[in-house]
């Protein structure tokens, strides 16, 4: 705190530059909600969360149906997002090229409908498990599948599989068939379950999703 009056031009410019950086990044970091659309609300986690909010609001005298609450959220987030997007336009190229920014949604919505990815081989017309997460008996290439950079590819494709999921399936199938010459095909799918809270009745229902089967002929 000494020498308050003896700052050089460099000191002032440094403080100014840091102020600009703090203001810009402070603005980027603001937890402004992004646009939510009807498709995103079809996600079971979103539905469950909306139902919880409908219950809480109802107990406080704000009676809304799930559809009404959903419509309000969509309407209110649209305008905010447009403004935010436009105002951040000038800094976008810099953030893009440096891969920097402020987006810190870590486990924002715990996934109460988790998926388990299964990789199976067809040998003599019988499907045999090759990889199942957290199953020590079926741990083919486990270290690679749990590697965060690969998990990101298949985990983020669970609810809404995109082209990268098919690329992933093709790559994994190719590896599996190469390592197992006796196998004729590979099947990859997700089993989605539902986690209920402690004290609630367990939900044992599961759903098979995103099933893909690739034979040797398909890959050739």
């Amino acid at each position: 705190m000494d020498g308050v009056s003896s700052f050089s031009l460099r000191d002032h410019l440094r403080a100014l530059a840091i102020t600009v950086v703090l203001l810009v990044h402070g603005y980027i970091a603001l937890p402004i909600p992004s646009t939510v659309n009807a498709k995103q609300f079809s996600n079971p986690i979103a539905k469950e969360e909306l139902d919880r909010w409908v219950g809480i609001l109802g107990r406080r005298g704000v009676v809304l149906s799930r559809a009404e609450l959903q419509a309000q959220v969509i309407e209110r987030t649209r305008g905010i997002t447009t403004f935010r997007k436009k105002s951040l336009e000038p800094i976008k190229p810099f953030n893009r090229i440096t891969g920097t920014g402020q987006a810190w949604g870590l486990f924002t919505y715990p996934n109460s409908f988790p998926h388990t990815m299964f990789i199976e081989l067809q040998i003599d017309d019988v499907w045999q498990p090759l990889y199942i997460p957290v199953d020590p008996e079926h741990d083919w290439n486990k270290r690679m599948f749990v590697f965060r950079r690969i998990r990101g590819v298949y985990d983020d494709n669970a609810n809404n599989p995109r082209q990268s999921y098919d690329n992933f399936v093709e790559w994994v199938s190719g590896m599996a068939l190469e390592e197992h010459p006796q196998a004729t095909a590979v099947r990859i799918y997700y089993r989605q379950g539902h986690v209920t809270l402690p004290g609630e009745e367990k939900d044992t229902k599961t759903e098979i999703k995103n099933e893909r089967i690739l034979s040797r002929q398909d890959l050739q």
Binding site: P31, E49, R52, W53, I56, W104, G105, L106, F107, T108, Y109, P110, N111, S112, P114, H115, T116, M117, P133, V134, R151, Y154, D155, G193, V195, L197, P198
Partner: peptide, 25 residues
Amino acid sequence: VQKTALTWTPLGGYNALYIILHDPH
């Protein structure tokens, strides 16, 4: 601030970690 899921709060019984640790991935 962005942990808006109720399971991160007393309203959801502080059950977020219970749910997250169920995820086999």
